[in-house]
């Protein structure tokens, strides 16, 4: 078994990626397709995908393929872009949570904020001053997930080398993939996974969006790192 990932992209996350200037995250223009593959351009590609789409996507995640110590294929968090519903100037985002659940989510956010800031940020309440919506929580929890040997919606797309497009809460709820069912519980109506050479691009939306080849083609162009 390989001790190291066998086909990590040429330049995956490195210590130099963090911290980075916030301005970089605000960039609107997609990087040239020929731009080097790193976490920075990956995020820009995800952002370009969401902001350039006619449909209203809530988030995009790149699941990066690698191998674990036993040689099993793993899709793990590569990068993600979350578009807050509140930024769209639309209706108040859906939250189905109890006060206890909200307090729990805020506590987790506060703890994570302290952890990455490396200091006591208990006075820094801005990060928890708004309720943590269901889709924000789903996105955050996604950062902890991996999909081994074709498991989950992303793993299915990667192993079959075909996009998986699940539209409609009923279809999500009836899916054999736990991630799809979980997405439905957290208010998603559409989940899509498009395989690429080095992983899978996943998009989710709280709206019902039916399959278009346009989106799939865009993913394939934006995430074609071999060219």
């Amino acid at each position: 078994p390989a001790a190291q990932p066998l086909h990590q992209p040429q330049s995956s996350a490195s210590t130099s990626d963090y911290p980075r200037p916030p301005a970089a995250a605000q960039s609107q223009a997609p990087p040239p397709v020929s731009a080097p593959f790193n976490q920075e351009t990956l995020m820009q590609r995800l952002q370009a995908l969401i902001e350039g789409a006619r449909e209203s996507w809530t988030y995009a995640i790149f699941w990066q393929s690698s191998y674990d110590m036993s040689g099993a294929s793993v899709l793990g968090w590569g990068e993600g872009f979350y578009k807050d519903e509140r930024d769209k100037g639309k209706v108040k985002p859906k939250t189905t949570t109890s006060l206890v659940e909200q307090e729990y989510r805020k506590k987790v956010l506060r703890d994570l904020n302290s952890l990455i800031s490396g200091a006591d940020t208990s006075a820094d309440d801005a990060v928890v001053d708004q309720e943590v919506t269901d889709t924000e929580w789903f996105f955050l929890v996604s950062m902890t997930q991996n999909f081994v040997n074709g498991g989950g919606l992303p793993g299915q797309a990667f192993f079959q080398s075909n996009p998986v497009w699940v539209a409609g809460p009923d279809r999500l709820a009836a899916s054999s993939c736990e991630r799809a069912r979980q997405g439905q519980v957290f208010g998603l109506q559409t989940m899509v996974c498009v395989p690429t050479a080095n992983g899978v691009v996943e998009l989710g939306s709280t709206e019902l969006i039916f399959q278009t080849s346009d989106l799939v083609n865009k993913v394939r162009v934006l995430f074609d790192f071999n060219n």
Partner: peptide, 26 residues
Amino acid sequence: HTAIPQARKASLARFLGKRKERVINS
């Protein structure tokens, strides 16, 4: 708990930063 992989750490920092910014500007 402190061993957050680098890619996830950067994503998390960005997510929390954007959220904080939005709250402050709202």
